[in-house]
Design a protein around this nucleic acid. Structure first.
Ligand SMILES: [Mn+2]
Ligand SMILES: [Mn+2]
Ligand SMILES: [Zn+2]
Ligand SMILES: [Zn+2]
Lengths: 149, 149
DNA sequence: CACGTTATTGCAAATCACTTGCAGCTGTCA
DNA sequence: TGACAGCTGCAAGTGATTTGCAATAACGTG
């Protein structure tokens, strides 16, 4: 919890520098995101936050997500279903594997693939700015797990 | 052109097997896609097709794209801008690099990255079914091109 | 080739996620 | 505490895509 509080405090300073205000709503939404361990969409965030403040509106969630994203406090993802899903940016870069049967989102990170993407872009004459990598897979029966393809 | 015609004919058989019909509209849209060398969205396809048949409607394009996708005749992509973009599936697998300044979409394919993705999924206990890989980059000044990162 | 069945189409209306105008509310800072 | 500008809730607006419906066109059959 202390971590969450620290992040909220730090973010408040960031906002102030941008001439923006730390409102109750932003504080609440930020807390919901800091406590989330999944990738909720606007409606999901709204539902969780609404439980703490029944006067909150969905438009405020949308507007806040935009502010948070601009400030670099969160990341937005758009998986196959199309809707925007968010997660706190206070973690190192990673990509996602989506279980096509359950919809579960699994995080992973691979230096090798990051490097490979950079190299591919470079070979095409580009500097890689960002990327989107999503794997869609199906759980293998147990015992099939291993590194040989 | 013969290639296009052959594909359309082959696709007609495919449709028939599914109890579907090869209509003028589908034939036209399929031709537009076969002749496209970019990644047009529904409206773009509509515009091109409309030039050949001014009675065509946009909803038919949308419905047709769904049929074509289900039949595996085309692929649908949703890059960052959100709208669905399509391309003929009659080509080998590749991924895309988007120039963030011009919006230009560049195709590339890399066995190494395909293999790496498969391995990552496997290590997480998953069989990779499909994936989405998009690189967003900025053109490097000429002379900077090379394979050493 | 004409016919009947049923998939398909054009059009308008409906969805859906997200955005925005507006009037009242609330941080901030002096 | 007071003024000012940023924020918020609410309702209406967007833009892409979908869908209900009646008219139309495919396609197998006779
Ligand atoms: Mn994540
Ligand atoms: Mn392509
Ligand atoms: Zn990555
Ligand atoms: Zn690929």
């Amino acid at each position: 919890m202390t971590g969450t509080e620290r992040r909220v405090a730090g973010f408040e300073g960031q906002l102030r520098e941008a001439g923006l205000r730390m409102t109750q709503q932003r504080r609440l939404i930020l807390r919901v995101l800091a406590e989330a361990d999944d990738h909720p969409d606007a409606k999901g965030i709204f539902t969780r936050a609404f439980a703490h403040d029944p006067t909150l509106s969905l438009s405020t969630v949308y507007r806040t997500m935009k502010v948070l994203e601009t400030q670099g406090a969160i990341e937005r993802h758009a998986f196959e279903d199309g809707v925007s899903r968010y997660e706190h940016a206070d973690q190192e870069h990673h990509d996602h594997l989506i279980d096509i049967d359950s919809g579960e989102v699994i995080e992973f990170s691979s230096d090798a693939i990051e490097e490979l993407q950079r190299r591919i872009a470079a070979e095409l004459g580009y500097e890689l700015v960002r990327h989107r990598l999503e794997l869609y897979g199906r759980k293998k029966p147990p015992g099939t797990r291993g590194k040989k393809g």
